[in-house]
């Protein structure tokens, strides 16, 4: 991806300020701050267990932060009630690491599921149109009546991606999108993510430690070490860093 970010407006769609999260006595996020600009693709890079997934789950409201604040599309998520959180989530797509497709539902039902709450009055024709459009955009229109168990890992990832797109989100959150995939499929998913960014005009936060994926998708990279944002820059800037903590990711 083009690392020249001068074309990206500075309006932040997500502002994370001094975020703190701990489980028992184990501090996972400590004074973590980051801005995601509109249209930007931000990769949060960190080692396994460094708190990347906790960070992204705090953003979507699956974990409540113990301190600091998260502002998404101008709204402080700590001030939102359950309904407010639901409204916010309609603007944010979340791709789970395990895909989280519903085993007992067909691909069509999986894609229709988010619409049952957020688009209650949508007609059957419109719902079908949205399902087919999302599946077409990930190249899997022919799987619409299949069960998730009939799909390969890469196909499941694409269907999960299509499900996140069904509500036309403004922001996409990806939790380790290429983990567990072979290099070829991983490359396809990374390419698809950049395509989606272009088609749907989304801003993205991508949690990853797959450097190939990072290189293909990142406008900027935030390095997460010891619970805070250790370094921030483009792929080229960080690659040239002499800091051993950063260099280890690029070796």
């Amino acid at each position: 991806m083009d690392n020249n970010t001068s074309h990206i407006p500075t309006d932040p769609v997500i502002r994370i300020s001094h975020l703190h999260k701990q489980f028992g006595s184990r501090v996972v996020l400590n004074d973590f701050s980051l801005d995601l600009r509109r249209g930007e693709s931000m990769v949060v890079l960190g080692r396994s267990g460094s708190g990347k997934s906790v960070l992204i789950k705090c953003l979507i409201g699956l974990y409540m932060p113990d301190g600091g604040s998260i502002t998404i599309l101008g709204k402080d998520t700590s001030q939102l009630d359950h309904e407010g959180l639901d409204v916010m989530r309609a603007h944010v797509g979340f791709l789970f690491q395990s895909n989280a497709l519903y085993d007992s539902m067909t691909v069509r039902e999986n894609l229709e599921f988010p619409m049952r709450h957020h688009l209650k009055n949508i007609s059957k024709e419109e719902a079908n149109k949205r399902v087919m459009e999302a599946l077409t955009n990930v190249g899997l229109a022919h799987t619409v009546d299949m069960m998730p168990s009939e799909l390969s890992g890469g196909m499941q990832k694409r269907v999960a991606l299509a499900r996140t797109l069904i509500l036309n989100p403004e922001i996409m959150l990806y939790d380790e999108p290429t983990t567990g995939l072979d290099p070829v499929t991983g490359k396809e998913i990374s390419t698809l993510m950049t395509e989606i960014q272009r088609i749907y005009n989304t801003s993205s936060i991508i949690i990853s430690h797959d450097m190939k994926c990072v290189e293909r998708t990142a406008d900027r990279i935030a390095v997460l070490i010891d619970g805070n944002c250790y370094a921030l820059g483009t792929f080229d800037e960080l690659q040239q860093s002499n800091d051993q903590n950063i260099k280890q990711f690029f070796e």
């Binding site: 789950k57 979507i60 699956l62 639901d86 989530r89 309609a90 979340f94 789970f96 690491q97 395990s98 895909n99 989280a100 497709l101 519903y102 085993d103 599921f113 988010p114 049952r116 709450h117 957020h118």
Partner: peptide, 17 residues
């Protein structure tokens, strides 16, 4: 239990259900 460990329950929450 299977839905819990494969994050399907979280996915429902995120979907607004």
């Amino acid at each position: 239990g299977s839905m819990k460990v494969t994050e399907q329950i979280d996915a429902m929450e995120v979907s607004g259900t």
